[in-house]
């Protein structure tokens, strides 16, 4: 792909990339309603709203014209950064471009295109998945203590906490939960039902351990394991807690 021109002269190069992206699917076009509900979400999980880039999906809206500028302003006020719009009629596309946002065709259409392309390709030439070295899922590293009342989550991937999770705090992950400190709060792994997910911690005092919906309370945990380094796995719908090493 690269032409190997002399390095000093190259200002940039284009690379293909697949980045995890949050899609905000709008079911209302009313900026006020969106504002109210966003404010609620922000207070529930402020950690998520840190200038998070989002794609506004308007596929479910029937209106040909949208108050896109106001919706974007509401998002930005709540620390969401709209980077593109998906779907919508031609006026929506035009106003997205006018606002400096990208525009994606509606999802169904795109999937169909991809399918037809891949069907026409011979097996060997199938496009390779995401380049090596790039995580296909969004793992998350939290540095520092997770304090009482705080909730830290990695919706799709693993959550790694470099610190302790204190009593009254909650950590959630679609994948595994690793705590490199004391786990005193609640830890939920495999929240979308991944039965292979586990919880790993250096000092177990957890209020609650949950794997793919199966849980154990502090009361149910063998007292001998408290304060030790453990791994928690799912074994026939039962949480099995074993020493870490």
């Amino acid at each position: 792909m690269s032409l190997n021109v002399d390095r000093a002269g190259t200002a940039f190069s284009f690379k293909g990339g697949m980045l995890p992206m949050t899609v905000m699917e709008l079911t209302s076009a009313d900026p006020e309603q969106i504002r109210e509900q966003l404010a609620g979400k922000v207070s529930q999980s402020p950690a998520f709203f840190q200038h998070t880039p989002v794609v506004l999906s308007v596929e479910k809206l029937a209106e040909p014209h949208l108050a896109l500028e106001r919706i974007c302003a509401v998002c930005r006020a709540h620390k969401l950064l709209p980077v593109a719009v998906r779907g919508g009629a031609d006026p929506v596309k035009q106003s997205a471009w006018a606002l400096g946002l990208g525009w994606f065709p509606p999802q169904e259409e795109r999937v169909r295109n991809l399918e037809s392309v891949s069907r026409s390709l011979p097996e060997e030439e199938l496009p390779s998945p995401a380049p090596a070295g790039m995580a296909p899922v969004a793992n998350r590293i939290h540095r520092g203590t997770v304090r009482s009342g705080q909730q830290v989550s990695a919706a799709e991937g693993d959550l790694i906490v470099l610190g302790s999770v204190n009593a009254g705090a909650e950590v959630l992950a679609g994948g595994n939960v690793h705590v490199y400190g004391a786990l005193r709060g609640r830890a939920l792994a495999g929240i979308h039902g991944d039965r292979e997910a586990g919880i790993f911690c250096h000092e177990l005092h957890a209020e609650l351990l949950s794997l793919a919906g199966n849980y154990k309370r502090l009361e149910d945990i063998d007292p001998q394991l408290l304060g030790t380094a453990v791994q928690v796995r799912l074994n026939d719908d039962q949480l099995a807690i074993a020493p870490l090493v």
Partner: peptide, 12 residues
């Protein structure tokens, strides 16, 4: 426990 909660708020 309450101090821990306050520390969380101080950080956010």
């Amino acid at each position: 426990r309450d101090s821990d909660r306050i520390l969380g708020l101080l950080g956010s």
